[in-house]
């Protein structure tokens, strides 16, 4: 295993997994904020056509994939902007057109399924030096723009009308996010494959937002989960392949590790949210009437075990469907 880590191809793979894991969730967070979690998937399918075009024409498939995915992103943004088709339907059209086009053109190129499969499911261990520079460069662009323009991109995704009246170029920023998503797809293509690209953008965000209370914490946590899953998944795959003679592809291992992070954080998030909901103060409405409870042998207090929920200028103790507020010697039903 240690020897494997000394191999140049493994070091290149680790670097690619790390930067992909860092960059993909940055754009993924904006997609989740816009409720466009599946956009990455749509662009991934479009990029299949791009890869096939590269195989057919003899250009580098990575560059043709970038070009076609960016065109797809611009097209879907234009459709969304005009509002003629729902984003949902536009995505579906993209899915099918991209995949069908890709498979057909690959057939024309007589490259067969094997070459295409490298791009569909990733082939991180066969990354060349030039691929590494390509990955590093684009990942840097994604992270610098995605984090540097965070206030603007956040505001546009949060509330388009407000952003427009604030003087922001809403159409421009929307297009930027779509184009960055397309670039992310092609960067992650070699790592996890086009069919799992979106997972690396979205799943870390889903894991992170279980515990986060702010946008910045979500994006930070997602980047940490993405980078950790990228490197961790690759190491797990390498370990299982090397020591136990199993055939484990790195791409799926990376995605499954990210999903495991979500499975681990989700119950904690559910608990946190439930607790928050139960501790929310009752609204203080002016009322004239209240019911006095006569017999009550239990004494409510800070340590009585019943949740004490703020209600105006006092607290209500919650038990068995009652809200009991101490009032002199007795309790009032609120």
């Amino acid at each position: 295993m240690i020897e494997l880590l000394r191999e140049p191809f493994m070091q290149r793979a680790l670097l690619a997994a790390l930067v992909t894991g860092l960059a993909a969730p940055v754009i993924g967070t904006y997609l989740v904020q816009r409720r466009l979690a599946l956009l990455g998937d749509g662009l991934g399918h479009v990029a299949v056509t791009g890869v096939a075009l590269g195989l057919w024409t003899g250009f580098a498939p990575t560059w043709t994939a970038v070009a076609v995915a960016v065109l797809g992103a611009v097209a879907i943004e234009a459709i969304r902007d005009r509002g003629h088709t729902s984003g949902d339907l536009a995505l579906a059209l993209l899915f099918y057109g991209g995949l069908a086009g890709g498979v057909m053109i690959t057939g024309l190129a007589e490259q067969g399924a094997v070459t295409l499969q490298r791009y569909l499911f990733g082939s991180i261990t066969s990354i060349s030096i030039s691929d590494i520079w390509f990955t590093l460069g684009l990942a840097l662009v994604i992270v610098v723009l995605g984090l540097g323009l965070l206030p603007q991109l956040f505001t546009v995704a949060q509330d388009q009308d407000f952003a427009k009246v604030a003087g922001l170029n809403v159409r421009g920023y929307n297009l930027l996010v779509a184009v960055l998503a397309a670039v992310t797809v092609t960067v992650a293509m070699r790592t996890v494959g086009l069919l799992l690209v979106s997972a690396l953008m979205i799943v870390p965000v889903a894991a992170s937002q279980q515990l986060a209370r702010s946008f910045r914490a979500t994006i930070g946590g997602a980047v940490a989960v993405g980078a950790g899953a990228g490197v961790g998944g690759l190491l797990v795959a390498a370990y299982l392949s090397e020591e136990h003679d199993l055939t484990v592809a790195p791409g799926p291992a990376i995605v499954l590790l990210a999903l495991a992070c979500f499975v681990a954080t989700w119950p904690v998030g559910v608990l946190l949210r439930r607790r928050q909901r139960r501790r929310r103060p009752f609204p203080a409405l002016p009322t004239d009437e209240h019911l006095v409870i006569d017999a009550h042998d239990h004494v409510h207090g800070p340590d009585c075990g019943h949740p004490a929920i703020p209600h105006g200028d006092h607290v209500d103790y919650v038990h068995d469907g009652h809200r009991h507020a101490p009032h002199g010697e007795h309790y009032d039903e609120h």
Binding site: Q33, R34, P151, A157, Q158, F162, F215, A217
Partner: peptide
């Protein structure tokens, strides 16, 4: 609210973009 957790301060700070 939106699809991602957002703190109250972050929403209010986005109003500052008219000047930033």
């Amino acid at each position: 609210a939106s699809g991602v957790p957002t703190s109250v301060r972050e929403v209010v700070a986005s109003g500052r973009l008219t000047r930033r």
